[in-house]
Design a protein around this nucleic acid. Structure first.
Lengths: 217, 217
DNA sequence: ACAGACACATACCTCCGGTATGTATTTTCG
DNA sequence: CGAAAATACATACCGGAGGTATGTGTCTGT
């Protein structure tokens, strides 16, 4: 998905910009600073939270000034939005990988849910995606994002229904219950006295829930 | 629960402070300004969100200055915390009322859940309790509050299990799934194309879920 | 009645998000 | 190839908001 850094070796670039020895192209400079800003922002947002993170701190950590930041992002909110988007993409990859690992469409949703739950146990992920994102971005913005975990869950549920792996029903309510339940569970698990046991119990409950909803087929 | 404004009529107050005609006691002044601040804050927090609400605006609306605010609250966070606490108490009352309306302990949890869901459809409630509270207060602070909806759900689940209305199981995972699912559902419902239909579908799903978990007993 | 506590009001400080402007580098085009 | 235009920043500055320090009027216990 990421655009490959323009190779330096190939001789004849027609549309590509001129390459003078060692001098980076503007696209490369841009991509590099954006990358630095995003990683710095993600670190600070995850550690201190959205509100407590100052853009000056982000810039200092990224090794640039606010001029650079505001050249690439419209403001703090959009910077956070970009970090959040990346986080969702990372999560979506893990979920998809787990989802595609099994054949049965309903069992696949279970594996995806399990992957989402386990990935959401990371405190940094929690802080960004579950604690700060709703207040900072708003619920609609989160849902209308290109790639996000909720959308993935919805698609999985729809497909499982279509394939007859679960009884016919409107997909949205189940999606909300499942996604919201998993998110809240992740928060509770890491703050439990015995997180390991809490995770095991939650997964056992989740299994029962999926079994109860599955058509015996 | 709220302390009654000291009655002016009764003649012999022994421990109560002196009453000069018309002059309010200090306790009354305090309670009144705190009340004004809380209502003003709740209005603005609900309308504009936590971050976008300035304390100056709250003070102006309450008809006091920042000196008064900081005399009663340690800062913006605690002011919001107080508003959130009130909101939770209001919700808890509605939930308890619905919960106590039916005998069967599991059915009572359903009624409480239904009440929580319907109360959470109010955009102002959503903004405060679901969108801003996690980021502003943190998840632990929300859970460790004296009266809150999650705690209520947990108690209801525990009691239903103890009474054998649902199969024996650890109560926390089910509580998280239920409470989180309902919260997310509330957000999705009000933003659905047809909120009425979405609510009906969600309640139907919720009913099936409760039936599936109930012991036939 | 008087001293202390209490309930504010006023003035000020600091930090932070955002903007306006300047500058160096790169790309494009004649 | 060179100049103009676009790009990618850096620097300087502004306004607002949370928080603090201090002053002032009102009530309360003795």
């Amino acid at each position: 998905m990421a655009a490959p850094r323009t190779g330096t070796g190939s001789g004849t670039d027609t549309a590509a910009p001129r390459r003078t020895a060692g001098r980076p192209t503007q696209r490369e400079r841009s991509d590099a600073t954006v990358e630095d800003l995003l990683t710095a922002a993600r670190t600070l947002f995850a550690a201190d939270g959205y509100a407590a993170t100052s853009l000056d701190a982000v810039c200092e950590r990224a090794g640039v000034t606010k001029g650079a930041l505001y050249h690439h992002f419209s403001g703090k909110k959009q910077l956070f939005s970009a970090v959040y988007t990346r986080e969702q993409e990372r999560l979506a990859e893990r979920i998809s990988a787990a989802y595609l690992r099994v054949e049965d469409p309903w069992e696949a949703v279970y594996e995806g849910s399990r992957a989402y739950l386990e990935a959401s146990l990371d405190p940094e992920v929690q802080r960004i995606t579950l604690l700060d994102a709703p207040g900072a971005l708003g619920w609609e913005a989160m849902r209308d994002l290109g790639v996000n975990c909720r959308q993935l869950t919805l698609r999985g549920v729809k497909y499982a229904i279509k394939q007859g792996a679960v009884a016919p029903r409107p997909p949205d309510p189940l999606t909300s219950m499942l996604y919201g339940g998993l998110s809240e569970s992740a928060m509770a698990i890491v703050r439990a006295e015995d997180p390991r046991a809490a995770l095991a119990e939650t997964l056992a409950d989740l299994r029962k829930l999926f079994d109860a909803l599955a058509t015996g087929r």
